[in-house]
Amino acid sequence: MITKPIISAAEAAAMVKTGQVVQVGGFLGCGSPDSVLGALVTAGINNLVLVCNDTSVLDEKKQRSNGVADLIKAAAFSKVIVSHIGTNPETQRQMNAGELEVVLVPQGTLAERIRAAGCGLGGILTPTGVGTEVEQGKQKLLVADRVWLLEEALPGDVGLIKARKADKAGNLVYSKTARNFNPLMAMACKLVIAEVEELVEIGEIDPDHVHTPSIFVDYLVMSREGSKS
């Protein structure tokens, strides 16, 4: 079995280039690759497009942040495609100041657009958003007596994902609700870097228990001790 290179968080960050579409796993920081995200803050990258469920949690009073929150604060993004920004006031500030373009996508539509990209589909038909601002600029189709929105597939250049465990081939196992968007993004991005808490030998993960097969993973990064996610 082919093994996957194990690289440092800084090496992973150096693979992300200005202008790229970066998909980041996690739900309000739960299941985000915090070591790699921290290295990206240090690298000082900018002008990225973020695809993520949300812009995570930033609480300046409690000096608490997780997930992509510090990257938002570091102004790493020119555009974010997310379902929710309510727990990161800095996202809203940058949006109101005209510094950041925010595209809000219903969460189920976001998941399905990412899934479609990974599955070789051009898009999906969903009833979600019909009659709301979400339908603006989109095709509406009448199929089987119902009106649907055509939502296009959403691929990424780089997928930064987080798993509980990997084997050296890159097979991944997620933990609990830290799974969320990670397996979808692993399939939707050209380059996939998986941050993991534990690395085991090939054969130690029962093939029946693999959540993301190794062929979707290009590089592995070990989570640093005391990582927030």
Binding site: F27, G108, A111, Y174, K176, F181, H211
Partner: peptide, 27 residues
């Protein structure tokens, strides 16, 4: 458990017989 939250990022638990899944399955 840092890996077990609700949709508001609050720590929760799972009852016997519960199940986890990805966001596409969830929606």
């Amino acid at each position: 458990d840092k890996d077990l939250t609700n949709a508001g990022a609050m720590p929760v638990s799972i009852l016997p017989g519960g199940a986890y899944f990805d966001s596409a399955t969830s929606f």
